[in-house]
Design a protein around this nucleic acid. Structure first.
Lengths: 341, 341
DNA sequence: TATAAACACGAAAACGTTTGCGTAACATAT
DNA sequence: ATATGTTACGCAAACGTTTTCGTGTTTATA
């Protein structure tokens, strides 16, 4: 790669000092119009642009925000990044994305990489393994140093920092209530293992809706999917049984779509025999047959708000106390829960 | 945010010079074992880590690769980033992602942001608007300076740099051939407007397959979707007609899924009345009813290869001439093209 | 003509590192 | 006693920039 042109080189070319060049390019009145013009023309010709590293080192600001997510091949996280990126760019920040790949070790190494001066702040969704082991020392370290940090979606309530989550309880409540309204009696829940916070919160909303409606909880209708096992096999154990549930609430799109396939495979008619609703962030729900009703998660909005909180924190605008933004998800009714009475 | 600890502060603490501290922390034999131990303990206690910006400025290397993609909320691009990121991390690089949002202007501003010293190289997929206007000066500028650059998927053949693409012609050929094999006679093509290279290449493969099989091309069966118009309406004009085609090749997943919905809406049975196949990168095809046959694009692999080319270029390993990697997509047959004779 | 103001530029520090070289102090060998 | 070697550190440059302050020269004012 060819060496980029620097102030020093321009200075040498004109036999002036570096500061003269710097000032000239900034249209300082300290420099004569003639010198200014010549220097600017020259710099322009050689396409001079100040080296960001030097600027960052001097200003102690990078104008970069780091994002660490468990995985990127996941529509929800993509939309969040989209939201972060748009807001950040608007505010003059760039985004650096790292993947923890759900691993604690990778999360820690990403922390180390990003917090050594490369970024002004961090937006993170906690890796599964980290949640599982409850190892949050790297977070606590950052927080102790007042490093700008925003947690989203997969958060930990004990960590003292800004957070943005969706109202998982409310969303699951809405969904369950909707199922009850259309007449479902035996509503199964397809959720995650307990250490995934969104899974357990959605379960809470489900339970709450049942209780509000005076429906007794049947523990045998609650299934915790193990992401390390085969998904379809696990779902089959819920549906392909003598007395299947008459409705299913799935905590994500993939579970819901698989449940739908499985139910059809068994000859059940949706929504007549079994109604299905899921949480969604992607496009799958729209294209299944019948299309899946769902709770939509507003990942884009979430990203925007996370970025806003972070940038406020970095620039000391906004309130000093830590914020916790809660985004309300919407119920989108499609044919998988639509009874035409 | 609390100030991070620096060599200077440690030096002051011990009344030694900065270089002594630096050397001590690097276990240099130039420093006595005692001093070394004390300094290291102190640095460890205060969690010292060298400032990356300073290191980058000094070494003239950032160990960061920039990625500019049209959009991130697109399964294909997510998988590519995934591939890039994994390979990059393995080689000690980090990834900075920027979105052009299909806009020429944003692409240029991303270029400016990233090439001012923030990254060691760039991986780019060209924005739609850029392709449309054929404005490649910013690329040419980089290439003139030998800036490490890899183009993927949406490339321009005139640009002199490393590239990685999928064999779009071959993929479309395979798909079309498959349709012909199952007995389709009137195969419609749902493609993009011409300036999208992947669209026109896939069209080429489609045409080639028809010709190889002695089937005359019927121009009225080739539909160029305008992404600024309503998608479903446009697709309806292909299917909801007196004499619909007996097969459809769609150049992406969304087109294919919509075609499927549309065909079913009209009462056509898939694949008996109309077979459908698409290019895919996401999960939609798997969950439609019937599931869609498709050409799978290997975005992950593409990302890996792009990263490999770029890092080879940055580090001057690998061949000096520019490479063009071509990835062969696979044909995945599902029920939307499966006739059980 | 002396004095003050205006002009045009340079020197140097600062951001945080690494590293080649210089050098005191002391030890060992001849 | 002299020469040589080792130990343990400091100095200073370099990466590229911005910015404060200083200063020599010219021009305007009294």
């Amino acid at each position: 790669m060819k060496q980029r042109i620097t102030l020093k080189k321009i200075a040498k070319e004109f036999g002036v000092s570096i500061s003269t060049v710097s000032k000239a390019l900034k249209d300082s009145h300290e420099i004569s119009e003639e010198t200014r013009g010549r220097i600017k023309a020259f710099a322009d010709f050689y396409n001079y642009k100040p080296n960001s590293l030097a600027l960052q080192l001097r200003s102690q600001k990078t104008k970069v925000i780091g994002v660490i997510i468990p995985e990127i091949v996941h529509h929800f996280f993509s939309t969040v990044i989209d939201g972060i990126e748009r807001y950040a760019i608007e505010k003059g920040y760039n985004v650096m994305v790292c993947l923890s790949n759900e691993s604690y070790e990778k999360e820690v190494s990403n922390f180390n990489l990003l917090t050594n001066g490369s970024v002004d702040g961090l937006i993170v969704s906690i890796a599964r393994e980290t949640q599982e082991n409850q190892q949050f020392k790297h977070y606590e370290g950052l927080i102790k140093d007042d490093f700008p940090l925003v947690l989203f979606d997969r958060i930990n309530d004990d960590l003292n920092c800004d957070k943005v989550i969706i109202d998982d309880i409310g969303g699951a409540y809405k969904a369950t209530n909707h199922l009850i309204e259309i007449g479902s009696k035996r509503i199964a829940l397809l959720t995650t293992q307990d250490f995934i916070t969104v899974g357990s919160l959605r379960k809470e909303g489900y339970l709450y809706a049942l209780k509000s409606n005076g429906i007794e909880v049947d523990e045998s209708l609650i299934y915790k999917i193990d992401d390390n096992q085969n998904l379809y096999d696990q779902i089959e154990k819920v549906i392909n049984v003598p007395n299947p549930p008459d409705a299913i609430l799935a905590v994500n799109e993939i579970y819901a779509a698989n449940a739908l396939i499985c139910a059809k495979e068994r000859g059940l008619v949706i929504p007549t025999d079994i109604a299905i609703i899921g949480f969604t962030s992607g496009l799958i729900s729209e294209f299944t047959s019948p299309p899946l009703s769902c709770i939509v998660q507003h990942g884009y909005l979430m990203g925007q708000q996370a970025a806003e909180l972070l940038i406020n924190r970095i620039e000391h605008t906004g309130p000093k106390e830590f914020q916790k933004e809660v985004i309300s998800p919407n119920l989108k009714i499609r044919k998988s829960t639509l009874l035409d009475h």
